[in-house]
Design a binder for these strands. Structure first.
Lengths: 252, 252
DNA sequence: GTACCCCTTTGATCTGTGTCAATGCAACTT
DNA sequence: AAGTTGCATTGACACAGATCAAAGGGGTAC
């Protein structure tokens, strides 16, 4: 691997190469959202370049010293927490344009693991430098806060899911959420490959893998989706949505 | 230590009275953590005074425009999310020194409700002004970020609880968490009043109120705690802790 | 001080999801 | 191309927690 220095002589594909935010088609989803071209350049200057990860590789591990947050440039990640007593909980799945690593800010040590579920690439954003810049650029500061807050709100949604929904409701919510995020990235809302295993889905949704598998099968039997291993095609989004809203407005 | 400079002609109880951060015994737990006396004064200047809430009153509601975050000065709160289809999930319980309202930063509208579970008092911290000040005071900025990140990490803990634990494990974790937080505030680690109902505990833990009640009774039968309605006394913290760590290190 | 209402407790039964187990499918390795 | 290995599916059964129901108990409001 030659070029990986700061000189942008060579375009996109080269490993470690830095693609400027201004040229990145994820910028509207990502940290530079709302920045002027000028400010985007300043953000670019502190971004420590990209990092490629092979499938199965850790971006960081619980216990690692926190120095940077990461923006997913391409690929797919999961984050999970594990405790001494062997519990393992997937806390999220991250795709292009989403920010990883904010769990580490609080103690300056990462509290979860981030693993690439397919060959992936991230931008490395040194946090101290980001803080310095954000204290100069009002809109960057505000957006950073929004990104962190959005993570809190997302977590509340997961708590709702885990606390109040039944297996099929959870899976429907999960599929609809993926669908919506793929849409926002210009992919098909109805057809996609799951990058994670049934077990990882189960961990995220608080279910056993068999239950996930059975729910997929039932959805398929009912003509809601078609499943072939990791390939999913959603056939009836509206009906999938009705699964989330119990007909009687039942209070659980 | 009756040194109470600034205003204190009239003591604590007066409605709307502003107690300076420097005089507040929660400062080490709260937003001003780590600030110099000077910077603490600047923070004081932007804090919009205190607000008292009667038990059962809302501090804010989902849908309210976001303007401030709040520091709990005294009392006890719950936050909950509810969806159109009638699901209701308690997302947290907040006590003195903890920060409320960060859910609203992301969309500038609150996404959950915050309710006082006893007569309470909060400091009102206008967020835009806090951002301005935090861009000038490095340690304030860093601490604000830590507080937000801590909330994310806490949420991950709840996800773990909801995703992997059984009823008694959840309740044990809940009690130990309360105990630890009371301790940090100088209260007894072993004896306290629950401010919330069994139903609210259940909602937070993803259980029905009957299950919570039964688990309390079982803990009492086993000599782990003593319960009389909302009064709890923990009798055997170590054994309560062992409930969290399945003996065989079982992987669920 | 008293009465009401909400909260809590406890029991009996039901059910959704977990558990255990076996088979099937597909991708990767050599 | 065949063997290996991990992942997914499906079935049978068990059980934790939900649901339904009824009876106390305590705090709050008047």
């Amino acid at each position: 691997m030659h070029a990986n220095v700061k000189q942008n002589v060579i375009p996109l594909i080269t490993p470690g190469l830095k693609l400027a935010c201004a040229q990145c088609n994820l910028r509207e989803l990502c940290l530079p959202f709302g920045l002027s071209e000028d400010d985007m350049g300043r953000l670019d200057n502190l971004i420590g370049g990209a990092r490629k990860l092979k499938r199965g590789t850790h971006l960081y591990r619980a216990g690692d010293v926190f120095e940077s947050i990461f923006a997913v440039k391409a690929g797919f990640f999961k984050t999970d927490v594990l405790t001494e007593d062997g519990r393992d909980q997937v806390t999220g799945f991250q795709m292009a344009g989403e920010i990883l690593g904010m769990d580490g800010i609080s103690t300056e040590v990462h509290t979860c693991n981030a693993v690439a579920l397919e060959d992936s690439e991230v931008c490395l954003i040194p946090f101290t430098e980001l803080e310095m810049l954000s204290s100069e650029i009002r809109s960057l500061q505000r957006h950073l806060h929004k990104v962190m807050s959005r993570e809190i709100v997302r977590d509340h949604g997961v708590m709702m899911l885990l606390g109040t929904m039944r297996a099929e409701e959870r899976l429907a919510a999960f599929l609809l959420n993926l669908s919506q995020r793929f849409t926002a990235r210009g992919y098909s809302p109805t057809e996609f490959h799951l990058r994670m295993t049934r077990e990882e889905i189960g961990s995220y949704l608080g279910l056993k893998l068999e239950t996930v598998s059975r729910a997929f099968s039932r959805f398929q039997d009912e003509g809601l989706i078609s499943v072939q291993q990791k390939h999913i095609r959603i056939l009836d989004i509206p009906r999938l949505k009705t699964l989330l809203a119990p007909p009687d407005g039942r209070i659980r």
